[in-house]
Every structure is written in structure tokens, then in C-alpha cells.
Nucleic acid binder design. Structure first.
Lengths: 198, 198
DNA sequence: TGAATGACAGATATTGAAATCTGTCAGCAC
DNA sequence: GTGCTGACAGATTTCAATATCTGTCATTCA
């Protein structure tokens, strides 16, 4: 009787994503998820204490997937300025591609993320740590002049908000975007490389 | 019979703001505005072609009021770096004070602004021009090393988005905010002052 | 004559009853 | 026992009728 696949959190999350894709955030119900898995909705509650926690788990998965490629770049070795440039452009690109490929699903994940703000906070923290790691390398290499890598990383992260924070996604189609990003990243890199005065 | 005050666009805008303050954006109707002025709602349509245009005019007034103190700073003379720092901190402060003093009204104006996106675009353009003006002065003074003041101004404006764009207003109460702003502005000023390589 | 009115049509918002959903739990099946 | 079911109470959402609002315009008034 092991032909019947066991109901795991993983399978539920998979089904939830599918249901969200199909019905959208507003219409997706726990009953729908259960129906997709061909179980009663009570069973879903055996694995997730509430609909909110199920949604949070979906959001977390999504954030983790977005994090992976950036983590890789952060761990590379080589000249820090080029790496930081690459990292920032990749982050911007990931978000941009997500919103272009499937704007509806992007909006869904966005609302989901707003509910799971603690997971988002942790995600941002990880990203800032990656930037701090690159900057720290840059200091060791003598390329960057920075007192506190973490503080500088946060400043760089803040400074690029406009190009990676979903709240601004409707401005990402601006044809002048590429040039503006070049100017911004150039300014930031110069700021990191410049000798400190204050 | 001149005791009866004439109905002017200005008076209508005044009354509209009052109605918005009282009833909130969702509940404020043209009929309410007319009632506040003790005229028929048809009369309001003699001065504004639609409810949307009335709202746009209110938004525009609001943006103009926010612009005035910044314009002053931009027109000051003196060392550009300090002026730029002052200008940016003032902009951040204006927004912060607005949201603290009356969060509800801030939210109202925010929604209003989203509808009047053309007016917002023009407002931002004015602000960037002010920054460009300061940067341009800095270049003349030999303090800044910048090829294109307007491009650099846009980069600075973009970089500070997190602290002046209303979409992030719920993060402005962060106790670490002051330090993060210091780090960000320091980074940007160093970037402007640093000799260009690229 | 030019500003204001108020009645009107169509669009939009409100409301309350009915339907659906969330979360719980006693009981069933393996 | 462990994992699932399905019926249930209370919360939430839907839907359609009802009310209100937006925008127009023929008419009134000074």
C-alpha cells in the first residue's frame, strides 16, 4: 500500500505554489490546496498550523531560491570591486527578470512577502552580510577604504534600493535604467575606493 | 450683494483638503466638498472638469509646498558638499516629519500622488534639477569630480530613495536610521569628491 | 450673459443574507 | 499509535438589491 505517496510539507508547498499560480493570491484557499493533493483540508493543518504559516513557508522558499545565485558570487575570490559590481547587477537582474517573466506571480509573491516580513528581514540580513563579505575582502586587498564593512554594506544595499526593492518594480522598465544604474554603481564604487576623511 | 464670497478654484481646493482630512480619501466625495462650500456639486464641476482633476490639483499643491524649502537651500551659496548634505537631510526630514505628524493624512496624500503620477514626475524632475545645481556648483568650486551633473544628481537622488520615497515610510522609524543615513551620505559625498577613473 | 442650480442617467459603493472558508476535533483506518 | 477524515462553529467572502455618487445639461437667477 505504499503506492500512495506520503503527504509531506514539501509536497504541500509544491501544491500551494501551483494553486497560487492558478488562482492567484486572493482566491487560493487551503481547500484548493487540499483538493490539488487529493486529501482533506484537515490534513494540511496537520503539517502547517495555519494558512498564514503555509504562506510564510512558501515565501521563505521563494526568498531562498533568489538568494542562492548571489551567495555564489559573494563566495567567489578575485578583485572585490568587480565582484561587488557583479553581485549588485545580478541582484538587480534577478528581480527584473522575475517581474518581466511573470508579473502576476511576482505580485503574488510580493504580497506574500509583506505578510512574512520577518522572513524578509532575515533574507535582507543575509544579503547585507554577503555585501559586507565582499567589501571586507576589498579592504584586505587594499581596494576599499572603509572603517566598518557591515555599515558600508548596508549603505550600499540602501543606495541600490530603487533597483531591487519590489516597491519600485513599475519603474524598472524605464529605458534610461541601464545608464542610471551605471552612474549609481560608479558613484558607490568610487565612494568605497576613496580615502576616508570623516 | 458682494457679501457672498465668489467660488474660486482656490477656495474649492481649500475645502477639498478639509474634506479629505475629515472623511479620508475613500469617503471624500464631490458632494461633500460642495456641501462644505454650501453650493451645489454642479458648481464644483464648473471649475474642475472631473473629480480626478480636482484630486490632481490637491496633490500638486501639496508637492509644491514640499518643494519650497528645498528650493531655498539649492539657491544658497557656499561650499557645495555641505549644501548637498543639508539639502538631502532636509528632504529626508520633511518627509519624515510629514509621516510622523499625521500618518493618516500622509497616506491620503500618498494615494493622491499615485493617481497624479505626471505631477509627481515633474516634482521629482525639479528636485533632481536642484541637486544638479548644487553638484554643478561643487564642480566649479573644485570640490566635486563629476562629468555630468544631471546624471550624478539622478544617481544621488536614486541612492537616497529609501529615505525619501513614501513606499519605505514604514521603515523610517528604525532606531538605526540616523547612523545609516550618515553612512549613506558619507559614501555618496566621497564618491562625488573622488577623482574619476572610468 | 455668465455663474449656479437641481434633476437625471449611468457608474460606483454599501449592505445584509447566503455561501464558502478557516481552524478544530472526535472518530476511523492502517 | 499515527495519519487522515469529515462534520462543525465561527469568521470571512460573495452576490445582488439598494443607495449614493459622478458627470451632464436644460433651466433659473442676478
Amino acid at each position: 500500500m505504499n503506492e500512495v505517496v506520503v503527504l509531506t510539507p514539501e509536497r504541500i508547498l509544491e501544491a500551494t505554489e501551483e494553486v497560487l499560480r492558478r488562482y492567484g493570491l486572493a482566491k487560493a484557499t487551503v481547500v484548493d490546496v487540499a483538493r490539488a493533493l487529493d486529501v482533506s483540508h484537515g490534513s494540511v493543518y496537520r503539517h502547517f498550523p495555519s494558512k498564514a504559516s503555509l504562506r510564510q513557508a512558501v515565501a521563505k522558499r521563494w526568498l531562498d531560491r533568489a538568494n542562492a545565485p548571489l551567495q555564489k558570487i559573494a563566495e567567489t575570490t578575485g578583485p572585490a570591486p568587480a565582484r561587488l559590481d557583479k553581485w549588485l547587477r545580478t541582484m538587480i537582474d534577478i528581480k527584473y527578470k522575475k517581474v518581466c517573466e511573470d508579473p502576476e506571480m511576482f505580485a503574488t509573491y510580493l504580497s506574500l512577502a509583506q505578510e512574512a516580513c520577518e522572513a524578509v528581514r532575515a533574507h535582507k540580513e543575509r544579503l547585507v552580510d554577503q555585501v559586507a563579505h565582499i567589501i571586507s575582502d576589498g579592504v584586505k586587498q587594499g581596494a576599499f577604504q572603509v572603517t566598518d564593512a557591515k555599515v558600508a554594506a548596508r549603505a550600499v544595499f540602501d543606495a541600490t534600493t530603487r533597483y531591487h526593492h519590489p516597491a519600485h518594480s513599475d519603474e524598472w522598465k524605464d529605458p534610461a535604467k541601464a545608464g542610471r544604474i551605471d552612474a549609481l554603481l560608479g558613484l558607490l564604487l568610487r565612494g568605497l575606493e576613496a580615502p576616508r576623511k570623516r
